[in-house]
Amino acid sequence: MIRRERTIHVVLLLSLLVLLHGCAVNKATATVDQTTDLSALKMFHVKKYSKDTRDTNVLIENKLTEMGFHISGTETEVDAIVTYVDKWWWDITMYMLELTITLRDPGSDFPLATGHSLHTSLTRKSPEGMVDEVLTNIFFSDEKRGADSDK
């Protein structure tokens, strides 16, 4: 009987281990195109994601303002248009699983720079923390991978 109970506990622990295995994943990357001069970008317009119901655009605007940039309510006469995709997940409570922010050329829609962060449940960050991480990586990280890696 004791042996049987021990077996049950081992199987339960293994099941829990398998279920929790993917729960602590962190990823944060940023790439800037070789033709982009980030220092020339001063004025942004944040375009609200059509599926965003949590006003992540406001968090991005606030963070950009805090970083010293200017925000415009329209797409005209800006240096870049900011688009984003936020993905939320549920684990006891809702949390932001992934955030991708892209700075685009206002004329051609060309992606000038992109940042992406992913934090699964056990290493979850607040939405403000996610926005901060992505924008900081785009503008200040020295570990950007891609066309700008030699910049």
Partner: peptide, 13 residues
């Protein structure tokens, strides 16, 4: 040629 923006694939990802 240089490429960026990609990433590794986790077994559970």
């Amino acid at each position: 040629v240089i490429a960026g923006g990609g990433g590794e694939t986790d077994a559970t990802g």
